[in-house]
């Protein structure tokens, strides 16, 4: 995404912008548009800085739109986003994107803030009995973990740099590689960095999942 030219957007007042873990923020603003769970918006603070795309984490009927982002210190936008206070202006595009498919018993595999589009589906009551596999480097980065408390065995946290009996030790790709009762007929949705998505997709294909059952959204 390069410029705000031709992009339909509105300037909205920030409601909340809280650091929920080191370098990770939850930004919210009043919803003034309809969207489909899984869609993205472009955000910005000034027309001179290129907008960036973020998945919406809130439910389709929620009063506020919630965006989960992590600050990239060498980035052009997130250091500025992290400084926003309630009442500050935020440029927000119309929602778009088609990472919105759902079916029964889907498997959601996310790394870091890649959990956001799946949260949106769950909060929109569009996910029927899903399994959520979330990867993070440390426990504090398992965002929204309280909302998964009743998921039981269908919520798997993969921690690459910690050890805890409650957590799988390793990355999501490690989990997939050792996953013995993986069902190749389910739909697998992936969201994260290119590296995570490509490795996880390869691991799923190696486990017999047809590539037609794998759908991915990549940060770029």
């Amino acid at each position: 995404m390069k410029t705000w030219d031709d992009l339909k957007y509105s300037t909205i007042s920030v409601y909340r912008n809280n650091e929920i873990a080191e370098g990770a923020y939850l930004l919210s603003f009043k919803r003034n548009f309809n969207f489909v769970a899984g869609q993205v918006v472009a955000l910005g603070v000034t027309p001179t800085i290129a907008p960036r795309l973020y998945s919406i984490a809130s439910g389709e009927n929620d009063e506020f739109i919630e965006i989960l982002y992590s600050e990239k210190l060498d980035g052009s936008l997130t250091p500025m986003l992290s400084l926003l206070k309630p009442g500050d202006n935020l440029m927000v595009s119309e929602p778009f994107g088609t990472f919105t498919q759902t079916s029964k018993s889907d498997v959601y595999i996310a790394a870091g803030t890649g959990i956001a589009p799946f949260m949106s589906r769950i909060r929109s009551a569009k996910a029927e009995n899903p399994t959520v596999i979330h990867g993070a480097s440390y426990p504090e980065f398992f965002y929204y973990n309280k909302e998964f408390e009743n998921f039981g065995r269908n919520y798997i946290r993969c921690c690459s740099r910690c050890s805890d009996d409650q957590l799988f030790q390793g990355r999501v790709t490690d989990y997939v590689k050792q996953w013995s009762n993986l069902d190749p007929n389910k739909k697998y949705y992936l969201c994260g960095s290119a590296e995570m998505v490509v490795e996880t997709r390869d691991a799923l294909i190696a486990k017999g999942v047809p590539f037609a059952n794998i759908n991915a959204e990549i940060y770029f």
Binding site: V40, L53, F96, T98, F99, A212, N215, A216, I218
Partner: peptide
């Protein structure tokens, strides 16, 4: 399925 960019 071939190109994740299609979602965006």
């Amino acid at each position: 399925m071939l190109m994740p960019i299609q979602n965006v």
